[in-house]
């Protein structure tokens, strides 16, 4: 999304917020600080490679069979696709979840401090049939795995 469009959306959002009685000043100030911490370029990347590069630092990943993605083979409803990622390796710093065929493939980045097991579950939206990709960063290296999910009803767009 271009900056201008984003600004539009953002302005609309704050107008809506003010009508429900929130202070306009607060509505305008806080989103900026939120956006600063959030990896904006990665989440707006249009291709899988770009997104991985922006999220994890490098576009190159090594396929690994130690990563297990649990997701349904056929998702009846693309708006809610349960996905679990389990990595059988040590020193995992982060798990990045991407949906290949979405307009912006990056779905989530999970930062895992020491002591947290590389085992996360969530639910994602999928626009159409395609792969779910998990990128695991462990010991400074990137590993990836993918799993195909067939979507019968898309989850993006009404």
């Amino acid at each position: 999304m271009k900056l201008n469009q984003k600004r539009r959306v953002f302005l609309k959002g704050s107008v809506a917020a003010s009508t429900v009685g929130l202070a306009v000043g607060a509505g305008l100030l806080t989103p900026a600080t939120v956006l600063a911490a959030w990896n904006e370029s990665a989440f707006h990347a249009k291709s899988v490679d770009e997104a991985i590069k922006a999220a994890a630092g490098a576009p190159v990943t090594e396929p690994s069979d130690k990563i297990t993605i649990k997701a349904p083979d056929i998702a009846e409803n693309g708006a809610v696709v349960p996905v679990s990622v389990v990595a059988d390796m040590d020193g995992v710093d982060s798990i990045t979840l991407l949906v290949e065929k979405n307009a912006t493939p990056l779905s989530a980045i999970f930062h895992l401090p020491k002591g947290t097991l590389p085992d996360v579950s969530t639910r994602v939206k999928m626009g159409k049939t395609g792969d779910v990709i998990a990128v695991v960063k462990a010991g400074g290296k990137l590993y990836s795995a993918r799993k195909g999910v067939k979507v019968t009803i898309g989850g993006c767009g009404g």
């Binding site: 679990s84 990056l106 779905s107 999970f110 930062h111 401090p113 002591g115 097991l117 996360v120 994602v124």
Partner: peptide, 25 residues
């Protein structure tokens, strides 16, 4: 008080999001 997970999410996480994870200690 100690962080055990820090997630950055995009709009492609489902409505009414679900999150599950495990940690030691």
């Amino acid at each position: 008080g100690k962080e055990v997970i820090n997630c950055e999410w995009g709009g492609s996480i489902s409505k009414n999001p679900y999150l599950a994870f495990k940690f030691k200690g």
